[in-house]
Write a protein that binds this DNA or RNA. Sequence first.
DNA 1: CTCCGGATCCTCT
DNA 2: GAGGATCCGGAGG
Length: 222
Amino acid sequence: MNKSTGNGVSDPSEVRGFLGGDARAIAPLILGAVLTHRSDAGPVSVRLTEVEAYMGPRDSEHPDPGSHTFGGPTARNSPMFGPPGFLYVYFTYGMHYCANIVCGADGAPSALLLRAGEIVEGEELAAVRRPASKAHKDLASGPARLASALGLTTADTGRDALAEPFSLWLPGTPVAAVASGPRVGVAGPGGTTEYPWRFWIEDDPTVSRYKAARPRNRSTAG
DNA sequence: CTCCGGATCCTCT
DNA sequence: GAGGATCCGGAGG
């Protein structure tokens, strides 16, 4: 007997083996997985409904300008160059955090950006962390929302998502209805339909609404 | 419902 | 020094 729970897989070494492959292939299979963070304030669990794959600079067939690793290793992106199953959390727009799960072999950087999910445990705590959210389905319906609901910050970057205080449960059978399309907020080649590396559960209400990348205003124009 | 601008600071060049 | 793998509230239909 292995340590599988019900129809799913919770054994960390099994899960890590699963994450050691191509992020684009893993993405549709990780939908429906449940990521749990047990903080001092209590546990919060999210059922993943939307992810995006980001590849490394070594993939010459599919160079990925949208990836944080495109320019090579830096202090910030170093977790992506490590083994699979670890968190890569970054700070953006001066106020938001976004969380990835590192995929691929050690040294072959790729990751899945956790774009949306449904809170399946710890809804009360998630709601405290997300005071602006007025509906259950919006508690984690966006990458920064999901990170906030789980209480993730850059303090968590580089930490193992498969060990305490985190855990990741994989469904035994893949989600049936998976859709894919261009990644959100990615400008340039990486944002075109040539790179349909955003995957989501079809018709799931927690999936974030698609918004194309928009040029930003220059506040100091003139 | 849609559109739009402001918030706010870390990160890399 | 510029810009970002975003979110939220307000205005208008």
